[in-house]
Structures are given as structure tokens and as C-alpha cells.
């Protein structure tokens, strides 16, 4: 496998900009640093990000500006401060990535424009996991209209691209667990997970991940969406991508570096290291899919 490590991080800006304001945000910040260390130790030569905070419509988009440079401000948490950045993107890999996606039937294109609005989640993840741009990076969007088939195929296309290029990558999912924010301003010291139900589900997901059961969690994505996700885009689908890139199995050593609320959402930093042993296949009832065959209307002939 071309993946040396899987990493799950929340994309909200608090651990980057104001960790000192809340004990949990600081634990997440420290956990980000631990995950960064794990990435370096894993032997990865690339870092690839799937951000749930970058929606797209024309299939999936891959960032291909070699040195995107901007001062980013979050549209919601603008008062926490600005995030100046300059990243190092592997543009040739982005082209290959998009080509591999197209080869599996997906719509995909690269974007390389000065001033392209890289999303808060990708900015936070790259600034904390790859602060000195040690590893060339890739970022892919989350297609609003993609459901499981497209997302799994995108994961497999990502694995194809890594394989072809001979790269060893750390793959990063930017996503909260439960995503329900407070709807009013809550003082940082009083931050908590929005409800006990959200908290219990988050802990159940983390229990699975700690046991290395990545594909099991991916298989439970639709249920997780129903239980603890406000329907902002579509399904809770980032782990479909991650598991597909990492071989759709439960053979990992999982580590939860931190779990803490961020303005009501559940944020966790988790790493998954590929191993030989695993938990066995427990929850597999979703179909596997190799190639995306387009939107198939059940009412009219294609």
C-alpha cells in the first residue's frame, strides 16, 4: 500500500488560532503536533487532504497551484484572526490524481488560480500538520452531489495515482465527527459537545477507530450521518474516501490523540497506522465499487 498513515482532524480554526482559550482546543493543538510527528516518522513523502469544507459541483477538484499564497479569514469565525499561508502543492501529482479519477469514470479537474479560496479546514490542517511545507501536498474537494460510489471510487483513484507515481503518502481527512455547532455565542470556557447523544456517538466512532476498524466506520457512515450530522452537504462520506485509499480493511493500529468539543461539534485527532493484524470484517454490508458509471436515472433510459 502507498499509504503510510491515515489522519483524521477537525477543520475548525480554534486549535490553530486560539488554543489557549480552551483546555480542549489546546489538547487538540497538541494532538495535531503529535500527528505531525507520526506523519514524519511514517516515512511519508506526500500529504494528501480530503476536505469536507471544500465543496465542489463539477465533479471533484484537485488543487494544483504550486505555491498558493493568501491571507485567509474564516467566514464564520472571522474574529479569531487571519491565517496567512503559503503552501507547497505537488502540481504534477494533482494532474495525475485528476487523470486517475477520470480513468475510473469520475469527473475531475485541477484548479490553479492565484487567489483560489482554499478552505479553512485545509488551511488549518496544512498549517498544523505540515508547518514548514516539508512534504509536498495535495488537496481534493468534496463533491456536493457525490454519494458513496463516487467517493469510494475517488479513494481508489487516489491509491492508483500514488501507486503510479511511486509516492508514499499520509492521507488526511478534514472533518468533525458530530457537526452540530451552537447557534449562539458560547464563551470558550463553556464549550461542550452539543448534546449527550452527539457525545456518545462520537465516543463510539472513536472506540472503533482506536481498534483500527476504519472500514467498519466507513460502512456505518450513513447511520452516522443520520444520527449526528446536520445535513449541510450530503452524507458523512470522508471515511469512504479514506478507507478506499487505505485498502478498505480494519487492519490498522488506531490512536486517538485527542477528542474535544469545538463550539459544540465533536473534534478528534486520530491516526491509523497500517498493520498486518486486524479486527476482521464486522460491519461489511455496503457493496464495493470499482468504476463510477455516472448518474443512472431509474425513470428514463440513459
Amino acid at each position: 500500500m502507498s499509504v503510510t498513515l491515515g489522519v483524521i482532524v477537525p477543520g475548525l480554526p480554534h486549535p490553530l488560532l486560539v488554543p489557549e482559550q480552551n483546555e480542549g482546543w489546546m489538547r487538540l493543538r497538541v494532538a495535531y503536533e503529535q500527528a505531525r510527528q507520526r506523519i514524519l516518522e511514517s516515512g511519508a513523502d506526500r500529504i494528501l487532504i480530503y476536505s469536507t469544507m471544500w465543496p465542489s459541483i463539477i465533479g471533484h477538484q484537485m488543487q494544483a497551484d504550486p505555491t498558493p499564497t493568501w491571507t485567509h479569514v474564516d467566514e464564520l469565525f472571522h474574529d479569531l484572526g487571519s491565517m496567512p499561508y503559503q503552501f507547497r502543492i505537488d502540481a504534477p501529482f494533482a494532474e495525475r490524481w485528476a487523470a486517475c479519477a477520470r480513468a475510473r469514470g469520475l469527473t475531475a479537474r485541477t484548479v490553479a488560480y492565484h487567489g483560489f479560496p482554499i478552505d479553512t479546514g485545509s488551511v488549518v490542517a496544512l498549517k498544523l500538520l505540515n508547518p514548514d511545507n516539508a512534504l509536498p501536498a495535495g488537496i481534493v474537494s468534496s463533491n456536493m452531489y457525490a454519494d458513496r460510489a463516487e467517493t469510494v471510487v475517488l479513494g481508489k483513484a487516489t491509491a492508483d495515482a500514488l501507486e503510479q507515481a511511486g509516492h508514499k503518502a499520509a492521507v488526511v481527512v478534514v472533518s468533525t465527527l458530530s457537526n452540530r455547532l451552537f447557534t449562539d455565542w458560547v464563551p470558550p470556557a463553556e464549550d461542550r459537545v452539543h448534546s449527550q447523544k452527539d457525545d456518545e456517538w462520537n465516543r463510539k466512532i472513536l472506540e472503533f477507530l482506536e481498534a483500527g476498524r476504519l472500514e467498519d466506520v466507513a460502512q456505518l457512515s450513513r447511520e452516522i450521518q443520520k444520527q449526528i450530522r446536520v445535513k449541510k452537504v450530503v452524507n458523512f462520506k470522508a471515511l469512504w474516501w479514506m478507507s478506499a485509499v487505505m485498502g478498505q480493511s480494519n487492519r490498522f493500529a488506531g490512536h486517538v490523540h485527542a477528542y474535544a468539543p469545538i463550539m459544540g461539534t465533536g473534534g478528534a485527532v486520530v491516526t491509523l497506522t497500517p498493520t498486518r493484524e486486524g479486527f476482521g470484517d464486522k460491519e461489511f454490508d455496503e457493496e464495493d465499487v470499482e468504476v463510477f458509471q455516472g448518474e443512472r436515472s431509474v425513470l428514463t433510459r440513459a
Binding site: H78, Y113, G115, L181
Partner: peptide, 29 residues
């Protein structure tokens, strides 16, 4: 301009920059 906590209002008297559409960057810069 999506704000999940409350309704926000621009409060800077002059704004100038480059706007690139995240969905259709090929059409809007």
C-alpha cells in the same frame, strides 16, 4: 456567506481584493 452562528454584517468601510469562485474558478476571478 454562510454563518451557522447568527446573522453577520460586513463592518469594514472599504473592501477590495480578488474574489475567485471556489466552484467555478474558471469563470470568476
Amino acid at each position: 456567506w454562510q454563518t451557522y452562528i447568527g446573522t453577520h454584517f460586513l463592518g469594514v468601510p472599504r473592501c477590495s481584493s480578488l474574489s475567485v469562485d471556489p466552484i467555478f474558478p474558471n469563470l470568476f476571478r
